[in-house]
Amino acid sequence: MTVSALQLKDLLEEAGVQPQVAQAVDPAQPLLKQGLDSVDFPAFCALLEQRFGISLEEETALTLRSLEDFARYVSERA
């Protein structure tokens, strides 16, 4: 299953990220440098686990920086 960074960008708001922040996210740049905070980030990871049926450990999640990183990770496992 191939998941694109743009598909994941659409999920940011669903995870509780402020719409203004979510819409401005550059898929190639680190999420935590674009306004996601310590609640947004785990919420987004939990939503990915639920939506794609994958397991996303904290230690792994913290190595995934950008939406493109997340898209690659999900595509390889979903």
Binding site: V39, P42, A43, C45, A46, E58, A61, L62
Partner: peptide
């Protein structure tokens, strides 16, 4: 403390 434990409890 650096894990998602608190968030998972809340969820």
């Amino acid at each position: 403390r650096n894990s998602f434990a608190a968030y998972r409890i809340h969820l």
